[in-house]
């Protein structure tokens, strides 16, 4: 499909995919002024060790020299050009749903970003999780190209589903995980312990979140909750990304969230 496709890469759409997918939120250096320098270094604490986001800038330390096929395999399958499995801190279990055209557009866009020469920091993961071969089995158990809320549905639901389940990878934080770190799809978006600190990531199903569709759209646009508190914590950079999307995309996400099965 990748070879022989007559798709002409559209870097403008790639920019939108980049924003919706939140790439810079994790791959820019922590505290960096220029979020488009994807030097990596952001840390993710987990039950299995600490992961560090790698350099994915278009240079020798990042994705410089990669082919589109290699990039696609990395993003949608979690496999490096050297054939190694990535740890699922990289949300490829969500990006598995990304369309080939969006991946190609994203790849084209990222070629024009600044190069960083920062070396990627090795993950700090102990035995047995440092054996990457085990990740192949993990993927067989936890990776599916079927949507959680499947089936053909009227728009804007399907666009919202693509944004929530694929690009914005909302479920990665808002859905609880099982003992080996797989998402509990039966408890989709019903909240989870915060892996990197105290407190909980909230349940955003209609069983707990009673915001109206207009409230949701306004929150994504302005960062203000219905009681006019401002967005905080890890959600702040997410909303900063959502605010840059077209109005129709924010409305689609809200429509999807309203259709998610309610879990109290």
């Amino acid at each position: 499909m990748l070879d022989g496709s007559d798709h002409v890469a559209d870097a403008d759409n790639g920019a939108l995919v980049f924003t919706a997918a939140g790439c810079a939120s994790c791959h820019a250096a922590p505290g960096a002024e220029d979020k488009l320098v994807l030097a990596g270094g952001y840390s993710f604490a987990s039950d299995f060790g600490t992961f560090y986001a790698p350099n994915i800038s278009p240079g020798a330390q990042g994705i410089g020299g990669w082919s589109l096929a290699e990039f696609t395999r990395a993003v949608t399958m979690g496999v490096s050009p050297q054939g190694k499995h990535y740890y699922p801190a990289f949300p490829y279990t969500s990006y598995v749903h990304m369309t080939d055209n969006d991946v190609a557009d994203l790849f084209a866009y990222m070629q024009d970003l600044p190069v960083s020469d920062t070396q990627s920091r090795p993950h700090d993961v102990g035995f047995p999780f440092n054996i990457r071969r085990g990740l192949g089995l993990w993927k067989q158990l936890n990776m599916s190209d079927a949507y959680v809320l499947g089936g053909p549905r009227p728009e804007p639901f399907e666009r919202g589903r693509y944004l929530v389940e694929a690009l914005a990878h909302c479920g990665e934080c808002h859905t609880p995980r099982d003992a080996i770190g797989g998402l509990d799809r039966a408890a989709w978006l019903s909240g989870a312990p915060n892996p990197s600190g105290k407190g909980r990531i909230p349940n955003i199903t209609p069983g707990a979140l009673d915001w109206s569709e207009a409230d949701l759209v306004y929150y994504f646009e302005s960062g203000l909750t219905p009681d006019y508190d401002s967005v905080g914590g890890s959600m702040a950079p997410v909303v900063a990304n959502l605010a840059k999307l077209p109005d129709s995309d924010r409305a689609a996400i809200a429509a999807y969230l309203k259709a998610v099965p309610a879990i109290p």
Partner: peptide
Amino acid sequence: GMGPLGGSCKACHETYRGPKN
């Protein structure tokens, strides 16, 4: 004008307000 206003709430809370729990 709501963008800059909401942005000012967020900018301050991010730097000077601690976590809820």
